[in-house]
């Protein structure tokens, strides 16, 4: 990534227009193709991979906008953490099968959504290029003086934006606690066992993996009938 940044910066210094335009058009094409791919892919795994393509394109655009720190964070946090978490949940739930895109439960949903999305795109473009808006006071956080990006970001993050920074820390902790509370199995005493009769069970219904059985009458945890591969209680979610 640093090498890419160096090459980009050098190229921008020597051949500005062509390299900039080329990089922008290639990464914009990647971004749009990935976004379309997320929508039209039938398999959620393919959607996640297309999302990675979009995120990489946006990271290159961040480099082009001279935000190398944000580009790196984009790749590490988004592509490296969030999308991997998506993939993990997809595999964990076993929903990586094809979705029937043709079925439409709500009649007229597709045309309405296309119209709504087109209207919002038109509104955004009109707002951006035709409307005369006033921008608020710039330089609230101090001007971007050309010092190294990370220094500037850190300085303004820990001085001007200290309270929002702490608030996001609290938000992250709340989100983690909330996710644990949501995803843990209800009823601490109960034990989840695999509903399969044995290791030879063919093609389980995905829901049957989560059948909750009451605790054993004796209260002894090891009294459950446990064939090989039968016990499922230990895995976290």
């Amino acid at each position: 990534m640093t090498a890419l940044a160096t090459v980009l910066l050098w190229a921008t210094a020597t051949h500005p227009t062509l390299v900039d335009a080329g990089t922008f058009s290639v990464s914009a094409a990647l971004v749009i193709a990935g976004a379309i791919g997320v929508i039209v892919a039938r398999n959620p795994v393919h959607s996640a991979l297309m999302l990675i393509m979009t995120l990489f394109g946006v990271a290159v655009l961040f480099l082009l906008l001279q935000d190398p720190f944000l580009a790196v964070v984009q790749v590490i946090v988004y592509a490296g953490a969030i999308v991997v978490m998506f993939l993990f949940v997809i595999m964990f739930l076993g929903v990586d099968r094809e979705e029937n895109l043709g079925a439409e439960k709500l009649r007229g949903q597709r045309p309405t959504s296309v119209i709504l999305a087109a209207a919002s795109l038109a509104g955004l473009l009109i707002l951006g290029f035709v409307g005369h808006w006033t921008l608020g006071a710039p330089h609230v956080a101090g001007p971007d003086t050309g010092a190294p990006n990370v220094n500037l970001l850190g300085q303004s993050l820990f001085t001007t934006y200290l309270f929002p920074f702490e608030a996001t820390a609290a938000l992250l902790i709340i989100a983690v606690v909330g996710a644990v509370a949501l995803a843990r199995r209800p009823g601490g005493e109960q034990k989840v066992v695999d509903a399969a009769p044995g290791p030879l069970a063919p093609e389980l219904d995905p829901a049957s993996r989560f059948v909750v059985t009451p605790p054993a009458p004796g209260g002894n945890e090891d009294a459950e009938p446990s064939g090989p591969g039968n016990q499922n209680g230990g895995d976290g979610s």
Partner: peptide
């Protein structure tokens, strides 16, 4: 606008997006 505030805001949006993804997946 040569203002670092926009980049700081991107940082915050990243944090909020990850929190949103965690809760949504839960």
């Amino acid at each position: 606008l040569t203002d670092i505030g926009g980049q700081v805001l991107v940082f915050f949006v990243l944090v909020v997006a990850s929190a949103e993804a965690v809760v949504g997946l839960g």
